[in-house]
């Protein structure tokens, strides 16, 4: 008989096929879709976060877990009642103008989604103007900017300045990430926070929106 513990373990191990089978079994046994997410899938993913921060799991494995979780969520999602599952928040993600590095930023997106956030991924090489336009359209709770080059990181500052000019800075938290940036830099450009990796980015968003 399938149970939540087993489901969490399968997410932890990144076993896509087993997760699909277990979710279907749990549904057939009459378990609630929301419980499957909260008591099984998310529990597994939280454990992934703990092991990653202890250097006991690594990015490729975390991604396998995230993908396995996504498969499970995809089965359950259509069965949820309206208002059943609240989004943890909406995050607009972009790699800043002039920068083509998007692997890390996309990873942040995947991890946010598997932790219940709604993610709008604006892609790479996104100008401050384009970010502000998208922000006005989607009204995200958080804007996350990524830069991997010392030459493009200043685009983050430009974007924040433009947000101020356009009067939307107060309503939206701004977080930044990428190899050359740091907490110091985040403070310097008056962003709301920096995270060194995708899982701490999730924690950061949760903290900022709490």
């Amino acid at each position: 008989m399938a149970n939540y513990e087993q489901l969490a373990m399968e997410v932890l191990k990144g076993k896509k096929k087993l997760v699909i089978a277990t979710v279907n079994e749990l549904l057939a046994a009459g378990e609630k879709p929301l419980d499957i997410i909260n008591k099984g899938l998310i529990v597994g993913m939280s454990e992934v976060g703990v092991l990653f921060s202890q250097n006991k799991m690594f990015i490729p494995e975390v991604l396998m877990s995230a993908k396995a979780m996504e498969e499970g969520v995809n089965i359950v999602k259509p069965l949820l009642q309206v208002g059943d599952m609240q989004s943890a928040g909406t995050v607009l993600l972009a790699t800043v103008q002039g920068d083509l590095h998007d692997i890390g930023k996309n990873l942040v997106g995947i991890m946010l989604e598997s932790n219940g956030f709604t993610v709008i991924n604006a892609g790479k090489d996104v100008s401050p103007e384009a970010i502000v336009t998208l922000a006005k359209e989607h009204k995200p709770d958080v804007i996350g900017m990524s830069a991997m080059l010392t030459t493009t990181m200043l685009m983050m500052k430009d974007t924040i300045e433009l947000m101020k000019e356009e009067g939307i800075r107060d309503q939206i938290k701004v977080i930044i990430g990428g190899a050359p940036v740091s907490t110091d830099f985040s403070n310097e450009i008056t962003a709301d926070g920096f995270a060194p990796d995708a899982l701490s980015a999730v924690g950061l968003c949760k903290r900022l929106l709490a």
């Binding site: 490729p60 494995e61 991604l63 396998m64």
Partner: peptide, 14 residues
């Protein structure tokens, strides 16, 4: 594309 999230990567990266 990138190889970070592929089964193949988890098989060999360690």
């Amino acid at each position: 594309g990138n190889y970070l999230g592929e089964d193949h990567t988890t098989l060999f990266f360690k």
